[in-house]
Structures are given as C-alpha cells and as structure tokens.
Amino acid sequence: MGFQKSFKALGDPVRREILSLLRREPMAAGDIAAHFDLSGATVSHHLAILRDAGLVLDDRQGKYIYYELNMSVVDEILEWVSTLRGEDRDEKNE
C-alpha cells in the first residue's frame, strides 16, 4: 500500500479528529459535522479525502451515509511505523 495519501490525510487536525470520533463507532455524515464549527460541505470534503486515502469506509443507508474507520489500513500504517522503531509485531504477540 502507498502511504502518501494516508499521511497527507492525517496531516490535517480536523481529519484526525474525525478519525478519533469514528474510533468509537460508525457515524452518519451529519453527526460528524455536528462536532465541528464548519460547513457541511467542508466536512464532506474532509470525509472524501479520508475515504480516498482508505482511512474510512462509507456505507449508504437510505438517505444517510455512514462512515467507519478502516482498521485494516490503520493496522498497516501502525505496522509500518513499528518497523521504524525496530519492533516486530509477531514478537509482540508471543
């Protein structure tokens, strides 16, 4: 996986806060937007960047779109970062 889009997406504090919100549970776009003093269009833009980077998944249910954290991509990033520290995930699980 290429990390360029993921790290660029993580560079913005609003997007990091969105990821923190989604860590707890999937949320509708409007519920996410309610946490910010930003326009709905701006929050939608941030969600699109996160989705394009693979950090969130979206699921349309009727007229709502629910977003959730894509843990497989988050795990991939964490695994790569741990290699920078000289950690081996397999050793940690033993």
Rank of each mutant, 00 (worst) to 15 (best):
23 R>G: 05
83 T>L: 07
41 A>R: 15
44 S>Y: 08
27 M>Q: 08
80 W>C: 07
83 T>C: 05
34 A>I: 04
77 I>G: 02
15 R>G: 02
72 S>F: 11
66 Y>N: 15
13 P>C: 03
47 L>V: 02
54 G>E: 02
69 L>F: 02
14 V>L: 06
47 L>K: 02
43 V>F: 07
22 L>Q: 01
26 P>G: 05
35 H>N: 14
77 I>M: 09
52 D>G: 08
81 V>P: 09
19 L>Q: 04
63 K>M: 14
15 R>C: 05
80 W>N: 09
67 Y>R: 03
65 I>T: 14
20 S>T: 10
21 L>W: 03
21 L>D: 02
20 S>N: 10
47 L>E: 00
59 D>A: 10
57 L>T: 08
15 R>Q: 10
72 S>Y: 10
15 R>H: 06
41 A>Q: 14
82 S>I: 07
92 K>N: 08
80 W>G: 06
49 I>Q: 10
36 F>R: 03
28 A>C: 09
2 G>K: 12
15 R>D: 08
26 P>W: 06
17 E>V: 06
7 F>L: 15
5 K>R: 14
73 V>W: 00
64 Y>F: 15
36 F>E: 03
94 E>T: 11
59 D>H: 11
79 E>S: 10
27 M>E: 00
33 A>G: 11
64 Y>W: 13
9 A>M: 04
